[in-house]
Amino acid sequence: MEEKEQLLEQMRKAVIEFEEERVKELANKWVELGYDANEAIFEGLAAGMEVVGELFAKNEYFVPEVLMCADALYAGLDILRPHIKAEDKTETKGVVVIGTVEGDVHDIGKNLVKLMFEVAGFEVHDLGKDVPLEKFVEEQLRTDADLVCLSAMMTTTMPGMKKVIEMIRERNPNVKIMIGGAPVSEKTVEMYGADATGKDAASALEEAIKMVSSLREMKRKKEI
């Protein structure tokens, strides 16, 4: 196997096995050899995290394991990111505002989705947890975000998302809104008038990319 391929394979494996130190070592080696940082982020780190998502879906991994994998991924990302080539930096995939709604202090799911957005090259504005509802509207306007992601971990905080959606739609009907969290289902998306949900961080990202590209398409048509 070519050395590059071998390194990527090792990186994926180290993310999956949450070996943070090993990921750092491999990322440093990658940089030293002068390979493309973006390639390592996507084909190494993110590809490893994708497998982690599958293991989670299959009940082989649970939240603690996924959190440790995310730490390993971040460790690699910190090393690789400063080496991303200038031409790869200019084109962000989109701007995202993300946060957990007021009354809810759970942020694990939100942080995992955020991580996937960062890896994919989105510009992410993280409002944190227990975020007053109006703050989402203000931040969307301030950053002209394409996408707003709302998280709620409890049945008792989920209804706050509906209010945010209404407030955002009133000001800016074209923004895409994604909701997530343990009690959220496809039915909730429909009930609240959101655009999508994802059953895990990886599928949330997939949905987000679809929505943002349709949004860009729409903008381009308007400009023409």
Partner: peptide
Amino acid sequence: VNFYAGKSSILYPTI
């Protein structure tokens, strides 16, 4: 504990 006093919407206290 945050009791969200003065908020008009229903919010459960959080740590």
